[in-house]
Write a protein that binds this DNA or RNA. Structure first.
Length: 278
DNA sequence: AACGAGACCTGGCAGC
DNA sequence: TGCTGCCAGGTCTCGT
């Protein structure tokens, strides 16, 4: 579920409520998610601390207090839901946080993740020195020229498909399976094109379209594919704007050719064979 | 070194 | 209706 836009939407909504709030209580409902949870360290960083801000880096949501950061990763099915009630809003709620804002407004956030591919972990030292943060690639919304250059440099001499390169988060972060298909469609590049064969102009087009599709998805509140919801439980509306993802055998909205699907490194990849010539 | 497959885990859905 | 098998947005690890 959550790629960059979905995490951005969750982080903005969480920031709105949690910035300048005190964390009054934290409850863990289990001792592990993807990995064992460092519950004591997370409590040390958040409990009774004021939240300075909540923001996103790559597909991670980061909560900052005066003593450090805690990151939330949402895996494939994770979500961060706001509620007025202390009790878990859904099955598979693994963590709850009670906050009180300095204006006395209070509430709860709940980390819900049925598949438990997500994780919550403390970052004790400086954020930029953390190994996890260090291995994240370029933010695709910040500098499209740098994205195009990085992709081009990495692609040099490579015969592996461009789609695989896009999913490498240590190069360009935050682009997941849905938006990789969408950006390649918008840039008119066949997903199986050997990365090394793409021209400089092709990479510029691709970097621009990655940024555009991500921005558009954020503006729409994320992709409500299957089960994604914002913290308020409302779905995003970007799904209605998807051009190829999940549209196998449907007519391309540009040329009416039927959308095809191919597995690339094990992930379903959707494309229009006419709009995206190889 | 670089790539792909497999693993993690649950829920939803299509097909029988 | 109910069972089985397949598929899913991410990312780490292992084997080739």
């Amino acid at each position: 579920m959550p790629e960059l836009p979905e995490v951005e939407v969750l982080a903005r909504q969480a920031d709105f409520f949690l910035r300048d709030s005190i964390v009054e209580d934290i409850v863990f409902y289990r001792e592990n998610l993807r990995y064992p949870l460092e519950i004591d360290a997370i409590k040390l960083l958040l409990l009774h601390q004021p939240i300075k801000r909540v923001f996103r880096r790559a597909k991670y949501m980061l909560m900052e207090s005066p003593v450090g950061h805690v990151y939330f990763h949402f895996g494939m099915s994770g979500n961060f839901l706001k509620s007025e009630s202390k009790s878990p809003p859904l099955p598979h709620t693994h963590f709850s946080l009670a906050y009180r804002h300095k204006n006395n407004r209070k509430g709860f956030f709940h980390f819900v993740d049925p598949r438990r591919f997500g994780h919550i972990a403390p970052i004790l030292g400086p954020l930029l020195a953390d190994p996890l943060i260090k291995r994240q690639g370029i933010e695709p919304l910040e500098n499209t020229k740098a994205v195009a250059q990085a992709l081009r440099k990495q692609a040099k001499g490579k015969t592996s498909p461009i789609k695989s390169l896009l999913l490498d988060g240590s190069l360009v972060c935050g682009v997941g399976n849905i938006y990789a298909s969408e950006a390649l469609f918008l840039a008119r590049l066949h997903p199986l094109t050997p990365a090394g064969e793409i021209t400089a102009r092709g990479f510029t087009r691709l970097a621009n379209q990655i940024a555009l599709v991500l921005q558009s998805a954020i503006a729409s509140g994320g992709t409500s594919f299957r089960d994604f919801k914002g913290t308020d439980g409302r779905p995003g509306y970007f799904e209605t704007k998807l051009m190829v993802y999940g549209k196998k055998a449907e007519a391309c909205s540009i040329c009416k050719t039927l959308i095809e699907v191919v597995k690339i490194s094990g992930r379903s990849t959707f494309y229009c064979p006419k709009c995206q010539p190889w």
